[in-house]
């Protein structure tokens, strides 16, 4: 069973002392005794928001990526520069009974403790394994401590869907650079169910020909009044695949583009009840509509798992991000 997770326990939180942390970790292993393998996929540095419970994601993630996880979580209530840490081990049980154990080292950080983080990551990263920094709610490009370890990291994962539009655009600019440490956007993989459901519709003969009569695309996504980065990225994917050109901004949330033989009006709106994508056509036929309710559900770590397994720049994603940058407001 994939989901047979066994906990080896957790040590007590204490002020940061890496030596103590390592002995705590060894103690957890000693207590378990034989029949345990140490996970060795990567060192994953997971940055989580204050108050967020990262355990469900970590437990799900280590099933696909048995790794050492360094989980970093700011806590404004801690005294400045303080870091509290503890260790835990979470194992998956294989059908043979063997346990594969992923170590999680948790660090709760007070304000101003950032400058201590690069040295912690360097010290605890497992030598010879890939080092991946994952930032789901804040921009990895705006954390100076991530910048300090950027050259040592093999991949930096941001999530445009959780960012302000300006930060998302920055992330895509970085992500489309084919040099230096790879920067990936998790939202690309979170949008896969959308791409899949829209793409499948046009496997039908009577529908594919309608793409040449597409005249309106409305993307109702996110709760904010500003354009949701996820909606912009999805529009970017459509535009890059359907070869839209010459975007012209009509209003902050409306863009007109050229397609072969006509024009398409793209509109971005908040998703009030559910996220929705609509296509209108100039052939007078029925519009098409997809909602988030009909999407395939994924495990919490499903999209992240795909991002981590990708070993090269994805030309389709890069094309979508470049088009999203063209469709985005310039200011």
């Amino acid at each position: 069973m994939d989901r047979a997770l066994v906990s080896l326990g957790q040590t007590k939180p204490h002020p940061l002392d890496l030596q103590q942390l390592r002995s705590d970790l060894s103690a957890l292993w000693r207590e378990e005794g034989k029949g345990v393998l140490r996970a060795c996929h990567a060192t994953l540095v997971l940055v989580v928001s204050p108050g967020e419970d990262p355990d469900p994601l970590i437990e799900d993630l280590v099933l696909t990526h048995p790794s050492r996880v360094l989980c970093i979580q700011p806590d404004p209530k801690l005294p400045p520069r303080d870091i509290v840490s503890w260790a835990s081990c979470c194992c998956m049980k294989r059908s043979s009974g063997m346990l594969v154990c992923s170590e999680t080292l948790r660090f709760v950080t007070g304000e101003g403790a950032d400058e201590r983080l690069p040295s912690i990551v360097r010290s605890l990263a497992v030598g010879g394994l890939p080092l991946v920094v994952i930032c789901r709610e804040t921009s990895p490009l705006h954390l100076s401590w991530i910048d300090a370890i950027r050259e040592e990291a093999d991949m930096i994962v941001g999530r445009s869907g959780g960012l302000e539009l300006g930060e998302a655009l920055e992330l895509w600019r970085e992500s489309t650079q084919a040099r230096g440490t790879r920067v990936e956007d998790l939202t690309w993989d979170e949008l896969r169910p959308w791409r899949s459901v829209i793409q499948s519709r046009f496997d039908r003969a009577r529908d594919v020909s309608r793409l040449s009569a597409l005249s309106e695309v409305t993307l109702e996504m996110g709760q904010r009044s500003s354009i949701a980065p996820a909606a912009l990225l999805l529009a970017g994917w459509l535009g890059s695949r359907l070869q839209w050109t010459r975007p012209e901004r009509l209003a902050p949330n409306r863009v007109r583009v050229k397609r072969s033989g006509g024009e398409i009006l793209i509109e971005f709106q908040p998703g009030l009840v559910a996220d929705t994508v609509r296509f209108g056509f100039e052939d007078g036929g029925e519009p098409m509509r997809w909602t988030s309710k009909e999407l395939r559900t994924e495990s919490p770590s499903g999209p992240l798992s795909r991002t981590l397994h990708r070993h090269a720049f994805n030309p389709v994603a890069v094309g979508a991000q470049k088009m999203a940058l063209e469709l985005a407001p310039k200011s």
Partner: peptide
């Protein structure tokens, strides 16, 4: 006359098999 689905992209590797 049939036309290929332009949204289906083979460069996404194993993303999905063609209609079958």
């Amino acid at each position: 006359m049939t036309r290929e689905n332009p949204l289906r992209d083979p460069s996404e590797g194993l993303e999905s098999a063609p209609p079958a």
